[in-house]
Design a protein around this nucleic acid. Structure first.
Lengths: 225, 225
DNA sequence: CAAGCGTACCTGATACGCTGGGTATCGTGA
DNA sequence: TCACGATACCCAGCGTATCAGGTACGCTTG
C-alpha cells in the first residue's frame, strides 16, 4: 500500500528516467519501423533500439501498446501542424483542408510508420469490435473533427456528429493510401491538389464533379479560392 | 511437351468434383467464421468443416486465398442484390444508394464474416503496399463504382475516376463499421436512414448539413425524394 | 474385345519447422 | 533492497512434408 506513496527516493529517482527512456524508446521504434517496415517483430525493434524485448514489454505492455504510443507521437506532431494552420483559417472548410493536408503529409513522411500505427492489431474479439476499437489511432483523429463540429451544429447527438467524422476519416484514409501507393507520374496529383480534391469531396460531394465535368485544375482552383 | 495437352481422362474427371467441393468448402468456411469469429485458425475451420487443414491448403493455397474465395462469394451475393435494385434506378445517385444499402446489409448479415473477408492479411511487404493491394476485396467493390463513373464522365484517367471510387468506399466502410458497432438505441439510425445519410454525404458532402442544421428526418427525406 | 495391371489424382491425417508474441527466471548495479 | 535488463522459455498458429489408402482411366495383352 505504501507503494502508492511513491515518495521513496529510490522510486522517485526512476520517474524522470522512465519518462525520458520511454520517449527514447518510442523514438527508436519509430526509426526502426521506418527502416524495417511495418511488419517488424518486437525483437527486431528491440535490437534496433540496442536493447531487448523485455524492456519494451515492461514499458508498453504489449505490441498494441507500442503502436498506440508511437501513434500518439505521430498524432501530436500532426496536431501541432494543424493548429498553426488553423490560426489563419476562418471557415470550417479551411480548417478541414488543413487537417487533410496534415494527414497526407503525415502518411507521406513515412509510409511504414503510417501503416504500423494504423493497423488495429486485432486484439479485440469476435463480433463487430473492429469498428468500435478502431485502433484508438483514428479515434483521436476523429475527435479532432467531432469537437469543433459539435459546437458548430449545437446538437451533440445528431447522426451527423455521431457518424460523419468517422466517415470523413475513412474517406481521407482510403483516398490517401491509394494516392500514397500510386507511382509518380504526370497524371498523379501533387500534395496540394490531392488535399483539395479530398476536401471538396468531403464538403460538397461528388455531384459538382459530375454536373460540370471540370478539369482537375478547375476543381483545384475552386478549393483554393 | 504432350503434358500440356492434359486430355487424359484421369485428370479431367476431377474437374466437376473439384469445383463442387470447393464451393462446399467455402460455404463451410463461411459458416465456421460466422460461428467462431473472424480470428478462427485454419485448423478450427477445417475441423468445423469435418476435414483437416491439408484439404484447405490444397484448395486455397494459404489463408489469404481462403479469405479471398469467401470474399468473392460475399461480393457476388451483394452484386446480385445491387443489380436488381439498379434496374429501377434512373439516376446515378439512386444506383449509389443501392450500393450503399447493399454494403450495409452485407456487413449486417454476418459481422464476423465481414471482418474476416475485409482484413487484408498483410501478405504485402514493406512500403505503401497497404493502399495498393487493399485486399482485393475492396478492389472488386471499387470497380463496381469506377466502371459506371468512367462512362458517365467520359474521361478515363481524371483524378475523379482514379480516386473517388476508392475514397467513397472508404467513407462507406468507416461509417458502416461504426454503425455496425453502435449498440441499438433510439438514437441509432436504422438501415435505411443510415444508407440515406451516407449517400448524401457521398453526393453532396457535409455542407448542406451545416448550412441548414436539418433534423435527421429531413435529411433522410431529401434522399428518398 | 475384355481382363488386368499400372497410372494419375484425390483424400485425410499426423508430425514437423518456423516465426512471433508474450512470460518467467536470473544476474547486476545503484 | 529494488528496479532494471538480458536470456531462456512457452505457446499459438501458419504452412509443409509425408504417408497410407481409394478410385477411375487407359493401355496392353491374350
Amino acid at each position: 500500500m505504501n507503494a502508492t506513496q511513491q515518495l521513496d527516493g529510490r522510486s522517485s529517482r526512476w520517474q524522470v528516467h522512465r519518462e525520458e527512456r520511454r520517449r527514447e524508446l518510442i523514438s527508436q521504434s519509430r526509426r526502426a519501423v521506418h527502416r524495417l517496415g511495418p511488419d517488424v517483430s518486437m525483437e527486431d525493434i528491440a535490437s534496433a533500439a540496442g536493447t531487448s524485448k523485455s524492456v519494451f514489454y515492461r514499458y508498453f505492455g504489449d505490441k498494441a501498446g507500442l503502436q498506440q504510443a508511437v501513434g500518439e507521437i505521430v498524432i501530436a506532431q500532426m496536431q501541432e501542424k494543424i493548429l498553426t494552420a488553423a490560426k489563419s483559417a476562418t471557415t470550417a472548410k479551411q480548417g478541414l483542408s488543413a487537417m487533410v493536408s496534415a494527414y497526407l503529409q503525415m502518411a507521406e513522411t513515412s509510409p511504414n510508420v503510417y501503416v504500423f500505427v494504423t493497423r488495429s492489431t486485432d486484439a479485440a474479439g469476435s463480433a463487430a469490435a473492429a469498428g468500435n476499437a478502431l485502433g484508438n489511432f483514428f479515434d483521436e483523429i476523429t475527435a479532432m473533427i467531432t469537437v469543433p463540429m459539435r459546437e458548430l451544429l449545437g446538437s451533440a447527438d445528431s447522426p451527423q456528429v455521431m457518424y460523419w467524422p468517422t466517415a470523413a476519416i475513412g474517406l481521407v484514409r482510403s483516398a490517401g493510401e491509394l494516392w500514397l501507393a500510386t507511382p509518380a507520374s504526370p497524371a498523379k496529383p501533387d500534395h496540394v491538389a490531392m488535399a483539395g480534391l479530398i476536401t471538396n469531396w468531403l464538403t460538397s460531394g461528388i455531384l459538382p464533379d459530375i454536373a460540370a465535368p471540370a478539369s482537375p485544375t478547375l476543381t483545384q482552383t475552386k478549393e483554393t479560392a
